[in-house]
Amino acid sequence: MRGLLIDFDPQARYRLDGRVALRPEPFGALAYHYGDRRLTFLRSALLAEVVRDLGSHPSVDAALEAVVPEAQRPAYRHALEALARSGLIREC
């Protein structure tokens, strides 16, 4: 299955997959992947922001440093890793 062999590299630049639409919601955002028709709940506004702007930062870590308080960065890195494995974001 997709994802098992993907190495997640927080030093690399990632972006939202081109087939994914993001819609802001009271709890954060909904992401819909038109390729595999899967819906993902991004359960904080900050995570939604990070995902949306990922591509404009040179790396995942840089994207986190820009807006996420230091103490929360490990949790966010973890969340992004899960999103990478599910194909919502990809290295570019």
Binding site: R23, P26, F41, L83
Partner: peptide, 22 residues
């Protein structure tokens, strides 16, 4: 995603969304 710190998703959805999912 680490969802634990948040209220139950179902509870949040009960309040409605910006647009329908289904």
């Amino acid at each position: 995603m680490s969802a634990d710190a948040h209220p139950r998703l179902a509870d949040q959805l009960k309040g409605g969304l910006g647009a329908p999912i289904c």
